[in-house]
Write a protein that binds this DNA or RNA. Structure first.
Lengths: 232, 232
DNA sequence: ACCTGAACACCGTTCAAGT
DNA sequence: ACCTGAACACCGTTCAAGT
């Protein structure tokens, strides 16, 4: 507030103090995240933006984790729908790639997604579409049910991992340390690592992501669940 | 310090103030984590335990993330080695399960592992063993190289996800919300979700983990990497 | 070189009191 | 019922000053 002398521009454009509501809180949270990243979306900062005290937010939001989950649910609305053309595999991969790309754009959200999954309409729609594509590919329903979970988890974890690296130079340094360790492995103590050499670190992140999707989709179609699909 | 009047028991047993060193710092950090969880392993708390100020730790540790990675590397020493008996698949799964079990015991560590991978001797040994098992199974080297990454990521992400749920009642509530949303999905708007019903949420975490390993191992063996293995 | 006191700039969450 | 001031109990990190 000390830094906002331009607030009362016009009463129509931006009311000095709109009534608090969950909807408005989440919207403001999304705005802060887009502008400054999820790490800035704190109860205190959000309250400041909404011209109130942090305690007031707790009337509408249970805690910070729930707030972050709500943001993700909101963002799920921005991902592209599965394209109408192509094989079911191509469309499935396109949708998953689009989901991952969204998380790549909002790095810290991926980590939040791993902790608290969204449960809103948008998330249900995504699951529904994925199930439809797997069904179209003739994947047995039980395998599809578990498969959706694994596919989304892989996409989310990949984004979370990559995201952290991009974010802080410290995390980057940590990754470099692994790179050096792999390259420096001795053929005596770690023959397989030494033999593979650069192959362990080869490929673009996108290539690896795509390969992972292929691996999962293939495996999901091949491996029966312990419950079994035929007797269900 | 206010709570530790028993400190100077004996100079041999527990010197009031051992010289600071990275080794001792990490050891103290592991101790706090075992006793109270990773969230209590803060620079301030750790400094208090070591009878110094937080600033002193920065001589040996770059930041909190690096400290957490060092703890994980340490813990990697406690996982069971791959058993000598059984098929390569059985031994591979046993090793991965053992890795995941360790992370399950120290929940928050799994999330830290997703952010900053360890790069110490222990992590290299784990990778080496996994590569050896995949080679024994006749998996082409390029696929094995990328496969190790995916397998460890899956194990880590699964632990991180499950861990968060176990930890806080809030995160648990968030998961329940998803459960309810899936169960309550209408057959009109979400036919596939409705048709699958309980199958989406069926199975024990262990069963799902094991199925996921099978899916990945199968896929890793089937899907060639874009670089190709034959021409390398 | 190594260590540290003190400060800077923050956090989440609770709760009694107000309207 | 809804909102909030103030407090409680913490954080990570930096840096000038000491030994």
């Amino acid at each position: 507030m000390t830094e906002h002398p331009a607030a009362p521009r016009s009463r129509r454009e931006r009311p000095a103090k709109p009534a608090l509501a969950r909807e408005g809180i989440v919207a403001a949270a999304v705005e802060i995240m887009r502008a400054e990243g999820l790490q800035k979306v704190t109860m205190r900062r959000l309250a400041q933006e909404l011209d109130t005290g942090p305690a007031s937010l707790y009337v509408y939001v249970a805690n910070t984790a729930e707030l972050h989950a709500a943001i993700l649910d909101e963002l799920l609305g921005t991902i592209e729908r599965a394209p109408a053309e192509g094989t079911w595999r191509e469309r499935l991969e396109a949708l998953l790639t689009s989901y991952t790309a969204m998380l790549f754009e909002h790095p810290s959200l991926a980590r939040a997604a791993l902790a608290a999954r969204p449960s809103g309409e948008r998330y249900l729609n995504l699951i529904e579409t994925l199930l439809a594509l797997l069904a179209e590919g003739g994947i047995p329903p039980g395998q599809a049910a578990w498969g959706v979970d694994v596919l989304l988890q892989y996409a989310t974890a990949t984004a979370a991992e990559q995201a952290t690296r991009d974010q802080s130079p410290d995390a980057d340094a940590e990754w470099d340390a692994l790179t050096r360790a792999l390259r420096g492995a001795s053929a005596d103590t770690h023959p397989h690592i030494a033999a593979l050499g650069p192959q362990l670190l080869s490929g673009q992140p996108r290539q690896r992501l795509s390969w992972g999707f292929h691996v999962l989709i293939d495996g999901i179609g091949h491996i029966p669940t312990p419950t079994g699909d035929s007797c269900e």
